[in-house]
Design a protein around this nucleic acid. Sequence first.
DNA 1: CAGTATCCAAAGGGATACTG
DNA 2: CAGTATCCCTTTGGATACTG
Lengths: 118, 118
Amino acid sequence: MECKENNFANIHKKEMRAVQDSMDVLNGKWKIAVISSICYYENRRFSDILKDVGGISNRMLSKELKELEINKLVKRTVIGTQPVIVQYTLTDHGLTLRTIINSLTEWGVAHRKKIIDK
Amino acid sequence: MECKENNFANIHKKEMRAVQDSMDVLNGKWKIAVISSICYYENRRFSDILKDVGGISNRMLSKELKELEINKLVKRTVIGTQPVIVQYTLTDHGLTLRTIINSLTEWGVAHRKKIIDK
DNA sequence: CAGTATCCAAAGGGATACTG
DNA sequence: CAGTATCCCTTTGGATACTG
């Protein structure tokens, strides 16, 4: 009995840690929006995302993109024209977030119906 | 052609808004962890959650629970014994978050394998 | 175009002590 | 037990100006 309870507690702890790992990556006011922007269009430039994610500043976009790059969710490609063009793409690993994005999209709609609208 | 592009852009905007609505509810350093704690155990007391979510302070737990209540994800029940006992449960609406929690759990595990460990 | 640098205000959140 | 209240440091992020 004690063993069973401990197992449950341990599994629970691991699940909590896993969820937290995800949230650490996805936190920040704009992260999900930035991912969505790139995700749907597949190949986006800095200025495209800037326009797409309403309200974000270039300073913030730069920061968020860097963090996403560090976490290997986004790939940055410089095209050395003049002036410079930079392309952002989701990596394969980044694309695995689509399930979560879709869940969040559906839930967001349902939640708005339930709470925000009425 | 223009019409098609506009439709796509509009749908995209709506999806981005929906995702943002979700994140507004789930943001905050501890929100998901608190939900997970209640979700897995179904019926939890304030002090249980406090122990379960490692590192959270009572001040923060109190705040997060209030916000979750406002968003109708959590139900608070006072049992008028002495000293007082308070039970927290997920509402039906709160339980619909399970899909997301599960996605986040799975992704968190995969992400840790890919990045955090090596 | 794609960022950086700087400044600054506001929000977030920890530690501690207190209450019905 | 289940919170509140207070203090105070840290992080976040907006505005603006500048650069290769």
